[in-house]
Nucleic acid binder design. Structure first.
Lengths: 139, 139
DNA sequence: ATCCTACATTGGACAATGTCTAAGTCAAGA
DNA sequence: TCTTGACTTAGACATTGTCCAATGTAGGAT
């Protein structure tokens, strides 16, 4: 992750305590947190950090392509630090947990030209939904 | 669409003016409206209809499987009356418009067993993103 | 035809998530 | 070390959606 900070500094990012903390939180686990979860965890280390800063920083990381924004249904967006590997998501319909998965083939090629209706198609996301082992366990 | 109303009545749905209007709005166009757009259009015909009722009715139609809920990014959910045909979505990243598209092959089969991590996978959605002809036109 | 009552609707408060702004603060180059 | 423009902050605001108590009504029962 210090890679990440270096890379960002190289792009003219001013390195502040707040940004460092947000980056560390994202890097810590392989779970994908919501903005508020990131804020809560960042607050543990830097109590004064504000919600706005967390939102700003996450937004910047997304713009810079370092982090992916994953929005599932009506719930809060989650942030996926694993942006440099091509992958898709498996979401638990009950608790909202997200796992990264890898699919076979390129989903983009499944959309034939006549089905593109003049759009300049640049991206495709595939989201699998189901019940995770924890939620399907003995209730 | 009167099919729809019949079908719902058969399932014990009480048929009210509000529900009829909401159903008609959904059926009218092949655009996918947000809840507030549905409310605005429903209000044209039935001025007293409340936001809560529109949300309730849309929620019921979704539960009954007559309408699909499509949530793209942080924007408001949109409602897709074309629930009985298997299809995926093409979203304009600029204006949020949604088009139905049909893909080749079954996306579910692209997720190999070891990549399912014990989930009971039941559903897959594929979302293509790009710029629609209108938005990519002369700005 | 009318009456009942469970189900539906209403309006408005509330909740969750995210955005914006004005004022103060600070990283890092000169 | 100074300076300055970028960063942070707190909190108001916006959007989308949910909930509730009071009121209304569709449709079966009489």
């Amino acid at each position: 992750m210090s890679d990440l900070l270096e890379r960002l500094r190289g792009r003219g990012w001013r390195l502040t305590a707040q940004r460092r903390v947000v980056a560390e939180v994202l890097d810590g686990d392989h779970v994908h947190y919501t903005a508020d979860e990131v804020h809560a965890r960042a607050s543990d280390r830097l109590p004064e950090i504000s919600r706005a800063t967390v939102y700003n920083t996450l937004g910047e990381l997304v713009s810079l392509g370092e982090v992916l924004e994953v929005s599932t249904d009506g719930r809060a967006k989650r942030y996926d630090p694993n942006a440099h590997h091509d992958h898709q998501h498996l979401v638990c319909s009950r608790c909202g947990t997200i796992r990264d998965v890898h699919v076979q083939g390129d989903p983009l090629s499944a959309l034939p030209e006549p089905e593109r209706y003049g759009f300049q198609v640049s991206e495709v996301t595939v989201t699998y939904r189901g019940i995770c082992p924890t939620c399907s366990g003995p209730s």
